[in-house]
Amino acid sequence: MTSPILSIDRLTKTYGSGFKALNGVSLDIRDGEILALLGPNGAGKTTLISTICGIVQPTSGRVTVAGHDTVRDYKAARRLIGLVPQEIALEPFEKVITTVRFSRGLFGKPRDDAFIEKILRQLSLWDKRDARVRELSGGMKRRVLIAKALSHEPRVLFLDEPTAGVDVELRRDMWQVVEQLKADGVTIILTTHYLEEAEAIADRVGVINKGEILLIEETQALMKRMGQKEMRIELTEPVSEVPGVLSGYGLRLEAGGCRVVYTYDRQAERTGIGRLLRDMQDADLHVSDVETRQSSLEEIFVGLVAEDAGEARP
């Protein structure tokens, strides 16, 4: 494993109001990966990104980008970072191409019209290059923000809810852009409320709530967990323990012995359901009802957040 491109170490942020928005966040981001940060409103996603990028001052902790400290060595660190903010903020009277050129210059890169053209084409903005920003639609404005963030060829790109308020088609376009960037070797950290989005494009998923990272896991591993299904078998009469003949199934007893829960892989060739039911009949367990359910990423997410809030898990 190569060293992480971005390393966050026990980062905390307490706002002037006394509100603790980040509560010791530690996170390593791998070079070239796409990380999706999921979290409810007010979880601290934007605060985390803003603190890394220099818009919010950290209270304690440390962040390095390719080894450069974002406070002490801020110039070297920031040169590597592109930021697409959550809120659309653009000079309304400027031309699209002027604001994108401005961003490149601001980040210390010499003018390169060919590169700017490439980005604008990639984001389907080339036709609009001479339009004033205020004449653009919301989705176009968001793409202008992306163009600005990419104008200085960053190695790490932060996308704070890039697809909020964007229609389905444009969202897919956006995903394509993200894939393309990944292919070019850009590391991408995006925040989103859509689990579908995280599943579709992220290599890893992080869940944040109340300023703490609750989970960070490979999307595939999460999907696998998601692929697990549960069969709940209600019994007519409770049993005190799983009969010995059924020990190979990894069954779990619930509801005071009235329910047997069997976990299986939906995608497996043999789910073992038929055999289990036969074996149960042989063991004299009478089934009154059967229900199967799937634990979705959504559920994992909601469960984590609820757990964090101190509520009992359903």
């Binding site: 803003s50 990028c53 220099g54 818009i55 801020y74 110039k75 070297a76 660190a77 920031r78 040169r79 970072i81 930021l83 903010p85 809120e87 903020a89 653009l90 000079e91 309304p92 961003s103 601001l106 980040f107 210390g108 600005k148």
Partner: peptide
């Protein structure tokens, strides 16, 4: 208008 974010995050 909020574009200050860019100045603050610039090197």
């Amino acid at each position: 208008i909020g574009t200050i974010y860019e100045l603050l995050s610039a090197p």
